[in-house]
Design a protein around this nucleic acid. Structure first.
Lengths: 146, 146
DNA sequence: CTTATTGCAAACGGTTTGCAGCATT
DNA sequence: AATGCTGCAAACCGTTTGCAATAAG
C-alpha cells in the first residue's frame, strides 16, 4: 500500500494526516502477525526514533475508533477466571465488557463435522472455542421498528 | 460443592489446604459468570476481610497452574492490533503458544446460518471468532510410532 | 488562525514480587 | 521441625492522561 493510499484512508475518516499516523500505519502493514504498540515503536526506532510510545497508543486508539484497524486482545481489563472446566463458548458483551458462558453442543457437532471435511494442514485440533461478540439485544427499540 | 470436597481437590494436587484457598475457591463457585480477582476480594469482604488481593492473585495463579480453574482473558499481556479487518479466526498452538490467523469464509457462512436459526436470547451478535486450539500435526513423531 | 495532534512526564490500574512471619503438614 | 503460604508494601508493566508546544487544515 502506497503512502498516498494511506493518506487517503486518513483523509477519508476526517483525520489529520500526520507523519506519526502514516508511520504507524506503515509499521502495522509491514509487521507480521499481530503487533503490539511496542512492536510498532521498535519497528520505527530506526527511521523515526522521535515518535513516542504514548503517541503510538493514541494513534492506535484513533485507528481503532475509526475502523482502520482492529484490536485483537485488549490487555487493559482484568483477568477473568472460570471454575467451569468443560469446553464452552463465550459471549463478549462489547458494551459492558462482560463475558458470559454459552453452552451449545450443536455448534460443537457442527464444527467438528466441518473440520472433518476441511482439515487444517499441519494442525491437529484439540479444542474449539467460539467467541461471540455482540451486545444486549435491543429489545424492540422504537426507532428500529419498521 | 462441600468444603470437604474442596479440601480434597486441593489435597489431590498436593497443595496445602489453607483457609484462603478454600475461601477463594468457594467464592469462585458462588460468583456468577467469570469473576476477577477483585470480585473475589469483594465477595470475601464480609466473611474474610483480612485476605489480601495479592494472596488472591497468588491463589488464582496456583489454581490455574494446577488445573483447578481456567484463565479466560489474560490481562497481563499487551494489546495486539491487526490491520486486517476481515473477520478471521485464530489458531492457538498449545505447544508453542503461538497464535496465527486462519481465514475461512466457509465457517462464517456456516455459523451465520446456524445462528440465524438458533438465536441467542437477549443477545445481538456482531461478530464471531473461532479460537482453534491444537498442535502441529504429529507428522509421524518418532516416539509415537511403535 | 483554529483546532487537533504531539511529546513529555506523571499517574493509573491490574498484577507480580521480595521478604519476614506464620500456618500447614 | 521443615516447608510452603500469607500479608504487606514496593515495584512493575502496559496504558492513559494533562498540559504546553507544535503542526495540520
Amino acid at each position: 500500500m502506497t503512502v498516498e493510499e494511506i493518506k487517503e484512508k486518513l483523509y477519508a475518516r476526517g483525520l489529520k494526516v500526520t507523519p506519526q499516523r502514516i508511520a504507524t500505519y506503515q509499521a502495522l502493514l509491514e509487521l507480521d502477525g499481530h503487533p503490539t504498540a511496542e512492536d510498532v515503536k521498535n519497528y520505527l526506532a530506526k527511521n523515526y526514533p522521535s515518535i513516542t510510545l504514548g503517541t503510538i497508543y493514541n494513534t492506535l486508539n484513533t485507528f481503532v475508533n475509526n475502523g482502520l484497524i482492529k484490536r485483537i486482545k485488549s490487555g487493559s481489563e482484568s483477568t477473568q477466571y472460570d471454575v467451569v472446566l468443560e469446553s464452552h463458548h463465550h459471549l463478549y458483551d462489547t458494551v459492558s465488557g462482560r463475558i458470559s458462558d454459552y453452552y451449545d453442543e450443536g455448534i460443537k457437532d457442527l464444527l467438528e463435522e466441518y473440520f472433518r471435511e476441511h482439515e487444517i494442514p499441519g494442525f491437529e485440533i484439540e479444542d474449539i472455542q467460539i467467541d461471540i461478540f455482540g451486545k444486549p439485544a435491543s429489545q424492540r427499540t422504537e426507532e428500529n421498528e419498521e
